[in-house]
Lab assay of single mutants.
Amino acid sequence: RRRVRAILPYTKVPDTDEISFLKGDMFIVHNELEDGWMWVTNLRTDEQGLIVEDLVEEVG
Rank of each mutant, 00 (worst) to 15 (best):
V13G: 09
G24W: 07
D54C: 10
E34D: 13
F27M: 11
W39M: 07
V13S: 14
R3Y: 15
L22M: 12
P9V: 06
L8P: 01
D46Q: 15
R2N: 06
N42M: 10
P9Y: 07
L55D: 05
E34P: 14
E47V: 06
M26S: 07
G36T: 04
E32V: 13
D35Q: 13
Q48P: 05
W39H: 05
D54Q: 11
A6K: 01
D54A: 15
I19A: 02
K12A: 14
D15T: 07
E57K: 06
L55E: 03
M26W: 09
D35E: 11
K12Q: 07
M38V: 06
E32Y: 09
W37M: 10
R3N: 08
L33M: 11
V59C: 13
W39F: 10
K23I: 11
E47H: 07
I7M: 09
K12L: 03
R1P: 14
H30S: 06
V29E: 01
Q48M: 11
D46K: 15
V29N: 00
M38C: 05
Y10Q: 04
V52F: 15
L8I: 10
L43H: 04
N31A: 12
V40G: 04
W39L: 08
W37S: 08
G49N: 00
V59L: 12
I28H: 08
L43T: 11
S20F: 02
D54G: 13
E18L: 05
G49D: 00
D15H: 13
D54V: 10
L43D: 04
G24Q: 04
L43V: 11
G24S: 05
T16R: 05
Y10W: 07
W39S: 04
E57S: 07
D15S: 09
S20W: 02
V29G: 00
N31C: 15
G36P: 05
T45G: 03
E32M: 13
G36D: 04
I19R: 00
N31L: 15
T41I: 08
G36I: 03
V13N: 13
D46T: 13
D46R: 15
H30L: 15
R3C: 14
E47R: 06
T16Y: 02
V56S: 04
I28F: 08
G49T: 01
R5L: 08
I7L: 11
T45F: 01
V52N: 15
K12I: 03
D35N: 15
L55V: 06
R1L: 15
V4K: 05
F27N: 00
I19N: 01
V13I: 13
S20N: 07
A6C: 04
R44K: 05
E32D: 12
E18V: 05
L50Q: 08
E53Q: 14
D35A: 12
I51E: 00
E18D: 03
Y10M: 04
F27A: 01
T11I: 13
V13D: 09
E47S: 06
R44H: 05
T41V: 09
E32L: 11
E34A: 15
Y10T: 02
G36V: 03
D35I: 06
L8N: 10
P14Y: 07
T41F: 06
L55F: 15
G24N: 07
L50R: 15
P9E: 11
E53W: 15
E53K: 15
L22C: 09
L55R: 09
E58D: 13
R5A: 06
E53N: 14
F21D: 00
R2M: 07
L8T: 10
W39Y: 09
H30A: 05
E53S: 15
L22H: 10
P9R: 08
E34I: 12
D15K: 09
L50D: 01
D15N: 13
W37F: 09
D35M: 12
D25R: 01
Y10V: 02
M38Y: 08
S20E: 04
R44G: 04
W39A: 03
H30Q: 08
W37R: 11
I28E: 14
W39V: 06
R44W: 03
W37H: 08
D17W: 11
E53Y: 14
G36W: 03
E34N: 15
I51C: 05
F27S: 00
I7W: 06
W39G: 01
Q48N: 10
S20R: 02
E18Q: 14
I19C: 03
L22E: 12
G60V: 14
P9Q: 11
L50I: 13
Y10P: 03
V29S: 02
E57D: 06
E58T: 12
D15E: 11
I51H: 00
G49W: 01
P9T: 14
N31E: 15
V56K: 01
E57Q: 09
P14Q: 09
V52P: 14
F27I: 03
P14G: 08
G24D: 09
R2P: 07
V52A: 15
E53M: 15
P9W: 07
T41H: 10
K12H: 07
M26E: 12
K12Y: 03
G36Q: 05
L43N: 05
I28C: 09
D54N: 12
M38D: 01
D25T: 02
R3K: 11
V56P: 01
R2W: 06
V52S: 14
T41M: 07
V13H: 13
